[in-house]
């Protein structure tokens, strides 16, 4: 499907319009994140700051998992955030052809909006021969407003839920992670990193207190995946 070359303004609004259905599904887990944030003792201001400045759902779920006010494991949370968001390095890199077409300050502002859904949608437009920085920013601005408001809504509404564990809401983390993981399935090459990551995490968790198993399992599992890829390239190809 070809779209005519259009002005930045119409590209922006095209991004906004196409993003609406995605925004609705993001809002639903934004609300859940907000409820869980309240349960973990995050204030409304902290929710606003984290959603507004970090603006990366999966890493915010991971951070919340380790959120213990009074003794926050700052280094572990920041390190886990970096590891979970490392995938954005490749996303921004693939958008380089678009970003090279605008001024440096605009490009530096636009990359703030790079995240799974906005990236996927902009790449899909690029493949159709369209896509632009204005389109990316259109999806990003709606996504940002949607994420900040839905997480705040969850935080405010969640204050009225007396005992989240009774309603199984603590499992929302695990359920979200399982669904996100399944969504990443690309084929058999994923089996080794996932299994090794899971086993390394179980071993780490049974020896060391705290959330270090996330970082350790992530590193060991991904290295195992890369080694398996290399082995396959050498012995099968």
């Amino acid at each position: 499907m070809d779209r005519p070359v259009s002005s930045a303004r119409s590209q922006f609004w095209l991004g906004v319009t196409l993003f609406i259905p995605v925004a609705i599904s993001i809002a639903s887990y934004g609300v859940v994140w907000g409820v869980l944030a309240g349960q973990k003792g995050m204030s409304v201001l902290e929710v606003l700051l984290m959603s507004g400045l970090v603006f990366a759902g999966s890493s915010q779920f991971v951070a919340l998992d380790s959120w213990t006010p009074g003794s926050l494991p700052i280094v572990a949370i920041v390190a886990a955030t970096a590891i979970v968001n490392l995938r954005m390095l490749l996303m921004s890199a693939t958008l380089r052809p678009l970003l090279a077409g605008v001024s440096r300050p605009r490009a530096f502002a636009a990359v703030f909006f790079v995240s799974d859904e906005q990236w996927a949608m902009t790449m899909a437009e690029m493949r159709k021969g369209g896509g632009s920085v204005a389109f990316l920013v259109g999806t990003g601005v709606l996504s940002w407003l949607n994420w900040v408001s839905s997480t705040l809504l969850g935080r405010v509404v969640g204050a009225f839920i007396d005992d989240p564990v009774k309603y199984g809401l603590d499992f929302a983390f695990t359920a979200t992670f399982i669904a996100l993981l399944l969504g990443m399935w690309k084929g058999r090459t994923d089996i080794v990193p996932w299994l090794v990551g899971a086993l390394a995490a179980l071993l780490t968790a049974s020896v060391i207190e705290g959330k270090w198993y996330i970082i350790f399992g992530g590193i060991v599992g991904s290295l195992a995946g890369a080694l398996a890829d290399q082995w396959r390239a050498r012995h099968v190809a």
Binding site: S58, V62, D65, A80, I83, V84, T174, F177, I178, L180, L181, M184, D190, P193, W194, L195, V196, G197, A198, L199, A200, A201, L202, Y213, I214, F216, G217, G218, I219, V220, G221, S222, A224, G225
Partner: peptide
């Protein structure tokens, strides 16, 4: 994928 598997297990 490895990070999420490590989180879930």
């Amino acid at each position: 994928g490895a990070v999420l598997a490590a989180l879930v297990a």
